[in-house]
C-alpha cells in the first residue's frame, strides 16, 4: 500500500471508520466492562467490526485499543495485560483488513491529570504512552492515532512518545473542543491555533478533532484547523448528542444529514473524514 502521507499529499480524501463503543454495544457486549478486554475475550467480534467497516468503505480501520494504556487499564486491574491487549488489538484489525486498508492504532486519554492538577508527572505520562505505542507499532500498526484528547500537554507527550518509539510512524492527533463565545477551546483552555502549533511541533503528521457535539460544529472546527495547520486535517465527528427514545439511545444525525455536511468538510479541505 502507498504510504498514507504520500496518498494524502497527492490530494486524496480518505474515509476513516466510525465508533467502536456503539458497535460493541450493538453486538450485545454489555457496558461496565473494559471495552479493550474484548480483544482477549471476544476476538471474533472485534474482527467482525473491522470487516464491517471495511465493507462499508473505510480506508482506515481503527484498533480497539482506545483505553489500552497502562494508566487507563489500571482502573480495571488489567494493567498487567497492557502489552497483550494492544498486541492482539492490532493483530485483529490487521487480520480483518489484510492490506486493503490502513490500520490506525487508537490511543485515548490516560484518564489521569498531569501535575500540578493531578498526580501524574510528565515522565510517567511519557512512559505510559511509550509502552502502549511501542506495543502497537511493533505489532504492525500503520498509523498511531492519539485521539479524544482534552489536555494539550498530555496529547503532546503522547505524540512525542510515539515518535520516540518510531520516528517514521505516521501520527494522527485529534482533540475535543467546546464551543465558547470566544471560539473553540479544550476544557483546559487551549484553542485550535495553539493546539496545531504544539502538536505539529511535537511531530504530529495529521491533526484535527474528534468526538464533539455533532458535525455542524466540526465544519467550523475544520475551518479553524485549516487556518493554522500546514499538515493534513482529520475530522471524526459523532452523530450529535443522543436522544432517548423508548428505552433506546438514538443519535439524531442521520447518514443523509452526515453526507450533506461531509461535502462542506471536503470543501474546507479536510483530508480524512470519519465517525466517532
Amino acid at each position: 500500500m502507498q504510504p498514507i502521507l504520500e496518498k494524502l499529499n497527492s490530494g486524496k480524501v480518505l474515509v476513516a471508520d466510525g465508533a467502536m463503543g456503539t458497535m460493541l454495544f450493538n453486538k450485545g457486549l454489555s457496558s461496565g466492562n473494559c471495552p479493550e478486554l474484548f480483544n482477549l475475550t471476544h476476538p471474533q467480534l472485534i474482527s467482525e467490526i473491522a470487516s464491517e467497516y471495511l465493507i462499508a468503505g473505510a480506508d482506515i480501520i481503527q484498533t480497539n485499543t482506545f483505553g489500552g494504556s497502562r494508566l487507563k487499564l489500571k482502573n480495571y486491574n488489567l494493567d498487567i495485560d497492557t502489552d497483550r491487549i494492544n498486541r492482539i488489538g492490532v493483530e485483529l484489525a490487521k487480520k480483518a483488513v489484510q492490506s486493503s486498508a490502513y490500520v490506525s492504532a487508537s490511543c485515548g486519554p490516560s484518564g489521569e491529570l498531569l501535575k500540578p492538577y493531578g498526580s501524574i508527572s510528565e515522565n510517567e505520562m511519557f512512559d505510559n504512552y511509550c509502552e502502549q505505542t511501542s506495543s502497537l507499532i511493533q505489532n504492525g500498526a500503520d498509523i498511531i492515532c492519539i485521539e479524544t484528547m482534552t489536555d494539550l500537554n498530555e496529547a503532546v507527550i503522547a505524540v512525542k512518545a510515539a515518535k520516540t518509539i518510531s520516528p517514521s510512524i505516521p501520527v494522527i492527533s485529534t482533540m475535543t473542543f467546546d464551543k465558547t463565545p470566544k471560539g473553540f477551546y479544550t476544557i483546559m483552555g487551549d484553542d485550535i491555533a495553539k493546539a496545531c502549533k504544539k502538536l505539529i511541533n511535537a511531530g504530529a503528521d495529521i491533526v484535527g478533532s474528534n468526538c464533539g457535539h455533532g458535525i455542524e460544529n466540526m465544519i467550523e472546527i475544520a475551518r479553524e484547523f485549516k487556518k493554522h495547520s500546514c499538515k493534513p486535517i482529520i475530522i471524526q465527528s459523532n452523530a450529535g448528542i443522543p436522544v432517548y427514545h423508548q428505552d433506546n439511545l438514538i443519535y439524531p444525525e442521520t447518514p443523509e444529514y452526515f453526507r450533506e455536511k461531509i461535502k462542506s468538510l471536503i470543501e474546507v479541505g479536510v483530508s480524512i473524514i470519519g465517525g466517532c
Binding site: Y117, P181, K182, T186, M188, G189
Partner: peptide, 12 residues
C-alpha cells in the same frame, strides 16, 4: 461557566 477561565484555574 462564562468561559472566562478553564479547568486548570478551577482546580487550583
Amino acid at each position: 461557566r462564562n468561559h472566562e477561565i478553564f479547568l486548570p484555574e478551577v482546580l487550583m
